[in-house]
Amino acid sequence: MLLIDGEMEMSKRVMVVDDSKTMRDMVSFTLKREGYEVVEAEDGIRATEVSGVGIFDLVITDVNMPRKDGITLTKELRMKPQFRSTPILILTTEADATKKAAGKAAGATGWIVKPFDPDQLLSVVKRVCR
């Protein structure tokens, strides 16, 4: 992975974490089209590896993933100094209070409900990330 640390880029860098390639593709596509730089990870472990390599402006993560799930990932990221103020959005499939609460408790900034269309994704992103 070519992540250049310390370089002041104008575009925002987003980490997209989901074990579903389809989801990753769709989210990446939507974000890249808006000028974001996207780094993908297929589960929490990979996301952790990737997190140490660069500066991120936003993290979008699914909850249900093998090896390390999104809630655990969120908790761990929040404990890292460089992610303390990074917006983290979790992807949920229901407008279900318990899942959202779990996310918030872990430190997530907000959530995106699947399925979503590109505009919905972008409007949530705008609310948490410049």
Binding site: D19, S20, T22, M23, M26, N64, L91, T93, K114, P115
Partner: peptide, 19 residues
Amino acid sequence: LNELFRAVHSIKAGAGAFK
């Protein structure tokens, strides 16, 4: 059991996206 759940969960999420 988690694997079974996740498999169906992922399919559902994508299916939703494609209506």
